[in-house]
């Protein structure tokens, strides 16, 4: 068995471009999924019943579907439904955003619910209005609790972006597997792929651990 690791270095530009796409995809998905998640959570908690039920149905649906199926579905069905010729990147982004929004909505809802009702009552007894109490007492504590969960969703999302490679989005996994197919250096390229993900993901996982220790809330 001879291994030729120079193939990794030769394709550094393509791998770097793929890595950038992976990171951009993660950032863009989160940028969409955080505000949308807040909206869905608020709809679920405070909206008119049928709307709240709809929001709940959306969250439960996407939390119970494999992401790869959503990616395929978006790839085949979105163009038929919308009549638009969407690029793989936009399709992948849509699938990821639909998925992560559902998870974020659940996170925000749980965060708001986790603050004991007594706190809201106490704040109002002290003369605050309901919105004041929510803004000053409930939300600051809820956000502290949510932050580590959002961070770990971020890490999951970073890894899950690899799934959009199945619809030919030129992110890290797709690029590495293309080079593998062209050069037949299977072991070298796949190991490099794992190594790049490890180098990027490991510090993120450690950061999540630190945040979980740092942002502990005790009422």
């Amino acid at each position: 068995m001879t291994f030729d690791w120079s193939v990794v270095w030769q394709h550094r530009d393509a791998l770097a471009a793929g890595t950038v796409t992976t990171i951009l995809l993660t950032v863009a998905t989160m940028a969409i999924a955080v505000p949308c998640g807040i909206v869905v959570a608020i709809l679920r908690l405070y909206a008119w019943r049928p709307i709240a039920a709809l929001a709940t149905a959306y969250v439960e649906l996407f939390r119970n579907l494999p992401l790869i199926l959503v990616v395929y579905w978006a790839f085949y069905v979105l163009p038929i439904m919308t009549g638009l010729g969407l690029s793989p990147l936009v399709t992948g982004l849509a699938a990821l955003a639909l998925n992560v929004t559902a998870y974020n909505a659940e996170t925000f809802r749980a965060g708001i619910n986790s603050i004991r009702r007594g706190q809201l009552d106490a704040a109002m007894a002290l003369g605050m209005s309901r919105t004041q109490a929510l803004r000053r007492v409930v939300l600051p504590q809820a956000l502290r609790r949510i932050l580590p969960v959002l961070a770990s969703t971020w890490v999951s999302l970073f890894k899950d972006t690899s799934l959009v490679s199945v619809i030919a989005v030129t992110e890290l996994a797709y690029v590495a597997m293309q080079i593998r197919a062209q050069t037949f250096r299977v072991l070298e390229m796949l190991t490099a792929l794992a190594a790049i993900y490890w180098l990027l993901g490991y510090p993120q996982a450690k950061l999540v651990d630190w945040m979980q220790r740092r942002f502990v809330v005790t009422e």
Partner: peptide, 23 residues
Amino acid sequence: IDSMRAIPVLVVLVWTFFALPIL
């Protein structure tokens, strides 16, 4: 444990199927 939290499951599966037999 932390490595598995950092590497996508897709990459683990592809590596196990394609690269491990070579090794």
